[in-house]
């Protein structure tokens, strides 16, 4: 179409009307964020106060960065922070790809009934609370009655205690999280795969692509958009993972490798009403998460992928 000044004018007018329409549509969303997220945000000042519940935000004294300094000088917090970061990284390189692989594999089951059954089963543990999941793992790996002990006992030995060993504890966290959440994490990928045009597979088949080739060259690129989003979002919440899980799994014997920021704060600050201290730890984590999100988004952009903003 040849564009004349007049038609550009018309287009601008049209798109302005269109934009106005979109802005109006957005009002309820904007209102929701304002009311439920931004109005209560004044609570952030707590991290810079010596906050007392009975004095409130306006009655409590401001102390600047006192609590951040206290965090910095607390060896147990530093240990917990390092653990949080290391565990998060380990999860990122194991659980994240595992979910994608699981979704790809599910997609390859041709037998519809079997596929649906497997899908339903692997979603189930998502609905079990961590208390229950922990007790399932504890029973299975128990140094008294668990499976490894039965095997070792038949050789007349005692099995190592995987549950209270700082060296195996992180692996335990990752395995149990995979057991519980991997199935559910496939939902979004399975949904994305459902949108891939079947004709692409037919075309590939004609080109002589095998199962593996189809998986790598059609399915995976077909969901890459969602994989990238999930990657960035996961990184953006990476430090907030796992309170419930760790809380139910850990014991003082594994604090050295498994105590994370959230469990440390819960155990040692909230009971003593150190709310400001807890808020400072939370704010510190949030800041880092925000930085991670921005950074990973930029990295993804650089790689030429569709980023989240």
């Amino acid at each position: 179409m040849k564009s004349t000044p007049a038609s550009i004018e018309r287009l601008n007018q049209k798109s302005f009307r269109r934009y106005r329409y979109l802005y109006v549509m957005f009002i309820p969303v904007l209102a929701w964020y304002l009311i439920f997220c931004y109005v209560p945000m004044y609570g952030l000042v707590m991290a810079f106060q010596d906050f007392f519940m009975s004095k409130g935000y306006f009655g409590s004294r401001f102390v600047g960065f006192k609590h951040f300094l206290e965090l910095y000088n607390d060896p147990d917090f530093v240990r917990a922070f390092v653990n949080t970061a290391v565990i998060a990284l380990l999860r990122m390189v194991t659980e994240f790809p595992f979910g994608i692989a699981l979704a790809l594999f599910l997609n390859e089951i041709r037998h519809q009934k079997l596929r649906k059954t497997v899908q339903t089963i692997i979603y189930l543990p998502h609905f079990l609370s961590w208390v229950i999941v922990a007790s399932i793992f504890f029973t299975f790996l128990s140094p008294e009655r668990g499976l490894p002990q039965m095997i070792y006992a038949s050789f007349g030995k005692d099995a190592p205690n995987y549950l209270t060993n700082p060296e195996s504890f992180r692996a335990l966290l990752i395995l149990s999280d995979i057991w519980k959440e991997a199935g559910f994490s496939t939902v979004v990928y399975v949904a994305a795969m459902a949108a891939i045009d079947p004709q692409q597979y037919e075309a590939a088949l004609i080109d002589g692509a095998g199962r593996w080739g189809q998986m790598m060259h059609i399915t995976l690129p077909g969901i890459s958009n969602i994989v990238v989003v999930m990657f960035i979002l996961t990184i953006g919440q990476i430090l907030n993972w796992g309170f419930d899980q760790v809380y139910n799994f850990y014991s003082p014997m594994v604090f050295s490798s498994g105590d994370i920021v959230d469990t440390y704060i819960f155990r040692s600050a909230l009971g003593d009403n150190k709310f400001s201290f807890a808020a400072a730890a939370g704010l510190f984590k949030s800041l880092l998460c925000a930085v991670f999100l921005v950074a990973s988004n930029a990295a993804v952009k650089k790689l030429g992928q569709e980023s989240i903003y």
């Binding site: 209560p40 945000m41 609570g43 939370g282 925000a290």
Partner: peptide, 26 residues
């Protein structure tokens, strides 16, 4: 126009929130 600002507005609370007490009062 202004999409980035809107998106930032939406994204910010993903990280920062005022905590439980203001929320309870709200």
């Amino acid at each position: 126009p202004g999409r980035k600002a809107l998106f930032g507005f939406v994204l910010f609370p993903m990280f920062f929130s005022g905590g439980l007490v203001p929320f309870y009062i709200l």
